[in-house]
């Protein structure tokens, strides 16, 4: 669902054409995997159906000339998404990064995103720690593996938090 939230977040900056949206997305988040046009338009169609975006038609408009704008419901959906921690699992970086950048773009508190996520990570880590204390060696090793991965994620989060100011200067136009 993150591509949809990303597009909504980008639209909070003002109405845009589909092509512009793809370009903005690729610039910010798509370094490795640029979005296909098809995915942009199918996502926008779904957002339109859910009432998160609306279309501003221009005179003499073809399908390429449609401009999309975010609705209030769309703004609320982004906010809710940002406030919701991701389920702690390995390799969350791209999602978390998207969230942080979007939070900054949309004027949300990026620190809050990080703190919320840390709380969620810690919840799982506490559970793993408890399980490890009571478990046998195999349990301990498995738990440790998970704990170290989760910690690595959190460290990356801390680093991101520390760089928020730099990032903000870089991201905000």
């Amino acid at each position: 669902m993150s591509v949809g939230h990303a597009l909504l977040g980008l639209l909070e900056g003002g109405p845009r054409h589909g092509y512009d949206l793809k370009r903005s997305y690729d610039e910010r988040f798509g370094a490795d995997r640029p979005l296909a046009y098809g995915q942009v338009y199918s996502t926008l169609a779904r957002l339109l159906k859910n009432g998160f975006v609306e279309v501003e038609s221009e005179p003499g408009a073809g399908p390429e000339r449609k401009r999309y704008a975010v609705t209030d419901a769309g703004v609320a959906d982004v906010a809710a998404w940002l406030a919701q921690p991701e389920k702690p699992e390995p390799y969350l970086q791209s999602t978390l990064y998207t969230k942080v950048v979007l939070a900054l773009l949309t004027g949300h508190d990026a620190d809050a995103v990080l703190d919320t996520q840390r709380a969620e990570h810690l919840r799982l880590m506490r559970e793993l720690t408890r399980r490890k204390d009571g478990g046998d060696l195999a349990d301990q090793l498995v738990c440790d593996h998970a704990l170290f991965h989760l910690e690595a994620d959190l460290r990356w989060l801390e680093l991101t938090a520390a760089r928020v100011q730099q990032l903000a200067a870089h991201v905000r136009p």
Partner: peptide, 20 residues
């Protein structure tokens, strides 16, 4: 350290002299 903090019941985050 998160692995140390995992021994806690809950956490508070201190940032720029404020607590969350």
């Amino acid at each position: 350290e998160a692995r140390v903090a995992a021994y806690s019941d809950h956490e508070a985050v201190v940032r720029d002299g404020r607590v969350r």
